[in-house]
Amino acid sequence: MDMPKSTKLEVIIPAYRMHTQSFLDVLDGLSEEDAMKRIDGRTNHIIWMAGNFVNVRYGIAHVLGLQEEDPYHELFYMGKTLDEHFSYPSLNELQENFHAISPKVYQSLLDVKDEQLAEIFQINMNVPFIREDKLNFIGMCIGRQDYLCGQMALMRRLLNYPAMKYDVDEKILY
């Protein structure tokens, strides 16, 4: 296992890598048509959830100083509300985007130092018990990805797909 320079990320690194696996597993076998379906017009569709998931990875990239831009930023940034009038990317496009950013973020997570993680990163949550720094932002991103994978897994079942598997592809190193 890769060892991060920061001991503060010893929990984040395995979670990040497991999210990579979970993201790919939850999307496995979904059709493009089904990925655009909403339940009773009230839920987000899987495309939106997957796009927000990838956008969160770009958020981590940004906080770590990477100069990478999500090509679908305007559709998903800060959990922007789903709009059925927008033209959303395909699952394939989102997965390509995911594979492009994820290894770069992973390497940055391994390389970041405690001093950088302690830097203030204003997100204006105004929650008195959350210090707005880079470490806590990354932690919140990990939580968001957990949530999104759970939502996509539920949608799989509601769309009559088998439950997601928890297969691990050991060739994916991020």
Results as ranks from 00 to 15, higher is better:
Tyr106Arg: 03
Arg17Ala: 07
Pro4Gln: 00
Leu159Ser: 05
Arg57Ser: 06
Leu117Val: 09
Phe129Glu: 15
Val105Cys: 07
Ile172Lys: 10
Tyr72Thr: 02
Ser102Thr: 15
Asp25Lys: 09
Ile138Cys: 05
Pro103Lys: 05
His85Asn: 15
Gln67Glu: 15
Tyr147His: 12
Tyr147Thr: 03
Leu159Val: 05
Gln145Asn: 14
Lys8Val: 01
Ser22Met: 15
Ile46Pro: 03
Leu109Lys: 01
Pro14Asn: 09
Leu94Gln: 06
Leu135Met: 13
Leu109Thr: 05
Gly41Arg: 06
Leu159Ala: 04
Thr43Cys: 06
Ser108Asp: 00
Met49Lys: 04
Phe129Ala: 04
Ala50His: 01
Gly143Lys: 03
Arg57His: 13
Pro14Glu: 03
Tyr77Ser: 09
Gln67Met: 09
Val11His: 11
Ile142Pro: 07
Lys104Ile: 00
Asn160Ser: 12
Asp2Ile: 00
Val54Met: 11
Trp48Val: 01
Lys80Thr: 15
Leu117Lys: 04
Glu84Gln: 08
Lys171Trp: 05
Leu24Tyr: 05
Ser102Arg: 08
Met125Gln: 11
Thr81His: 11
Met125Pro: 00
Met164Cys: 10
Asp2Lys: 11
Leu82Trp: 13
Met1Ile: 05
Val127Leu: 15
Glu119Thr: 07
Glu33Asp: 14
Leu135Phe: 15
Gly143Met: 12
Arg17Asp: 02
Lys5Phe: 09
Tyr161Cys: 09
Arg57Val: 04
Gln116Glu: 12
Phe121Leu: 14
Arg144Thr: 12
Gly29Phe: 10
Val127Asn: 15
Tyr88Asn: 02
Leu159Thr: 07
Gln67Ile: 00
Phe76Cys: 06
Met125Trp: 14
Leu75Met: 08
Leu154Cys: 05
Asp169Thr: 08
Val54Lys: 04
Leu94Val: 08
Val56Pro: 01
Val63Gly: 02
Arg157Asn: 06
Pro128Cys: 01
Gly65Glu: 07
Ser87Ile: 14
Leu75Val: 11
Leu9Asp: 04
Ser102Leu: 00
Phe23Ile: 00
Asp167Val: 11
Met49Asp: 14
Thr43Ala: 08
His85Glu: 14
Leu109Pro: 07
Asp83Pro: 02
Glu68Ser: 09
Glu10Pro: 00
Leu148Gln: 11
Asp34Met: 06
Thr43Leu: 09
Pro103Phe: 08
Gly41His: 11
Ile101Leu: 09
Glu33Arg: 15
Asp169Cys: 12
Ala153Trp: 03
Asn160Met: 02
Leu148Cys: 06
